[in-house]
Design a protein around this nucleic acid. Structure first.
Lengths: 105, 105
DNA sequence: TTAGTATATTATATTTTATGAATATGAAAA
DNA sequence: TTTTCATATTCATAAAATATAATATACTAA
């Protein structure tokens, strides 16, 4: 087995992984987006519920949600007048659990 | 027991936690800082070693390290001509392990 | 003391992100 | 069909992050 190539490959992987993971982290790396995710980690919420829970303006919540939706961390479903948001990316669920385990006790 | 106060307290905790954790995440949320941390997760490294491993300029490595040192993720020790960096925050070590477990396989 | 090597700092141009106000959309109720 | 309610979008501006080049420090060896 050619070690040189093996290393080159794993460095490439590492770079790729770091690019992806840092993108995810960037989406979480804001006090209020993280707060929103903490609430979503406990289950689906509407925009209005998040607005109350996080004491944020409607516009702010909407923009934060959009940002995280773009990064595919969450998705939404409109039912009647309300839009329900939830975490979709299973990796993000795992990450939120890890964060809780590490930093919240 | 007063539920209202209990909730108020836990919301306060949540806010505090989110502020701290998002600070940590922000420090990781850059492809090359994350790359540096991945290498440090495997053990102490000098600035020059990181520069080679990550193909970055000396100045860039130095600045990234400074940034993460300010956030107390890492620290450094000068021995002779070389400065050795390592991860100090045990939470960051755990987090790097989680990230690896979630995103790198 | 001079030269060389490893690292740190500074300056700055550029890009990205945050914030808040105003306005728009679109579904439902009256 | 007008009004109301939940949510989304746009826009202006401020603030922060990033990249890069140039220069400085500080230790070592000759």
């Amino acid at each position: 087995m050619n070690m040189k190539n093996a290393n080159a490959a794993s460095i490439r992987d590492m770079k790729k992984n770091c690019e992806h993971v840092s993108g995810v982290l960037k989406a979480l790396a804001h006090p209020q987006r993280l707060m929103i995710l903490c609430h979503l980690a406990e289950g689906e919420k509407t925009v209005g519920e998040l607005q109350e829970l996080c004491t944020l303006s409607q516009s702010a919540v909407s923009q934060f949600l959009k940002r995280m939706k773009l990064e595919n961390l969450i998705d939404s479903e409109k039912r009647g007048l309300f839009v329900h948001y939830r975490i979709v990316d299973p990796d993000v669920k795992k990450l939120m659990n890890s964060l809780y385990g590490i930093f919240c006790r």
